[in-house]
Design a binder for these strands. Structure first.
Lengths: 137, 137
DNA sequence: AGATTCGTAACTAATTTAGTTACATGAAAC
DNA sequence: GTTTCATGTAACTAAATTAGTTACGAATCT
């Protein structure tokens, strides 16, 4: 959805339009994207001509920021104790906590290097390529 | 559960015992741990004196192997297309696929350095510490 | 004023996961 | 060889999560 916004040239896209892109429901779009508003990644406006657009230039929006704004973890396990007092759990969590800290830093660093502008550029490349191919055929 | 097996000194632990450690059900234990058998991480035996034990020395079982044997992914997102033909999705997946490949290699490498023996040693350290504390009080 | 669009609550349906019961299979003890 | 103990596995239930839907109020533009 954000790539579509990046390609929209400043025009606001409605939840309706965005939802049709990914074959889902406008309300689902609003729910998902709303989390990106506080971080300034998107801006929404109501009424005529309203909808969603990027909050800043796509080359200043990294995947790390998007991931963080959505409240997603970069690693698929939690290090919260389930049985406080269990020494085995404490040992496991301690080991994973160290791992997690460094791994998350690494992942965030890598995701921080990929921006929406990169994705949009890649999309455009593919788009042009298809265009050429179609024309050649 | 594996740490418990590592601490069991070769004795087989029953699903019943293991389940009580983590406050769950014996069947849940069997279901979970069964996936580790093919990888040789655990071995199960039936009948009298049967149960579960480590399939090899704990210093030769890494967290990376355990994770792999359980069929878990190290990263919490999939790169499988949902809308084949969507160029935006293809661009996003391509970017994430690159990221994923390197990130998974890194994570596996890090997890590969942590063995069950490390966890067991840390557990034992905590255990002894508690013992001393209790005695001191 | 009327049309449009987000914001949000409330409800339903589908999926996943944990937990449970039940019973067959295999292995040791006697 | 029978009894006892333990895994292996199917089948069912319950809880939690998620996606989807409907409905309607609030904001904004023409």
């Amino acid at each position: 959805m954000l790539v579509h916004m990046a390609e929209a040239n400043g025009r606001a896209l409605t939840s309706e339009e965005l939802s049709s892109f990914i074959h889902t429901n406008p309300v689902v779009v609003r729910r998902s994207v709303a989390g990106l508003r506080e971080a300034g990644i998107v801006a929404s406006s109501r009424g005529h001509g309203g909808g969603w657009q990027l909050g800043r230039a796509p080359d200043r929006i990294s995947l790390a920021e998007i991931s963080a704004a959505l409240g997603e973890t970069l690693l698929p396990f939690s290090t919260e104790p389930e049985s406080p007092g269990c020494l085995v759990e404490q040992a496991v969590i301690a080991a994973l906590e160290d791992f997690r800290t460094e791994a998350e830093r690494l992942l965030a660093e890598k995701l921080g290097r990929i921006t929406l502008a990169d994705l949009a550029a890649d999309f455009r490349r593919r788009y042009d390529e298809i265009g050429v191919t179609s024309h050649a055929v």
